[in-house]
Amino acid sequence: MKLRANPGALFTVFVLLLMIGLVATAKQWQYQARLFPWTIGIPTMVLCFLQLGLDMFRGKDADEDVAGMMDLPVDRSVPVAVVVQRAINIFAWILGLYLSIWIIGFILSVPIFLLLYLGIQAGETWKVAVTYMVVMMVFMIGVFEMVLHIPWPPGLINGPQEFILGLVERYLSSLVPI
């Protein structure tokens, strides 16, 4: 058997290190608290070493694709470089949404995210983007504010969010007959 380069092995190493860390930190706990973590963690470490060996000596992941049993198939027709670039792109958009939520709050971030994603990333016309944004804004306020009464976390700059929520509240109270 010869050693083969396999990026999947890096993921196995990550899982192995995670398991070692979990088992090591459990050492300081009293017996009852560490019984189950060790019952699971120690055999899993052994399995991780076994998997690492399989990754290093057997190679390709596609041989053992999870598709066809309980999971959805992975489309391997797109080149890996493109996959990585597009994945980074999407996760960057999600992080951007998080950043925006942190700065100006949920209420404004969601429509802005939809507008920018559709207009810039997806290349939709601005008409489609604005329509989509308005519909989503109504949906969000309808479901999350009026039905679920979510306490929206304040943003660093909270004025605009409070202003919109105030408008919604005034509108709703005007609907209630006195």
Binding site: V15, W29, M69, M70
Partner: peptide, 26 residues
């Protein structure tokens, strides 16, 4: 073992789930 052609990975994945479930106050 049945949710793919990689039973060792499946077992490790199950163990990760069990460990995630142990996080928090015992």
């Amino acid at each position: 073992v049945l949710s793919g052609n990689a039973p060792v990975k499946g077992l490790i994945a199950g163990a990760i789930g069990l460990c995630v479930g142990m996080v928090g106050m015992d």
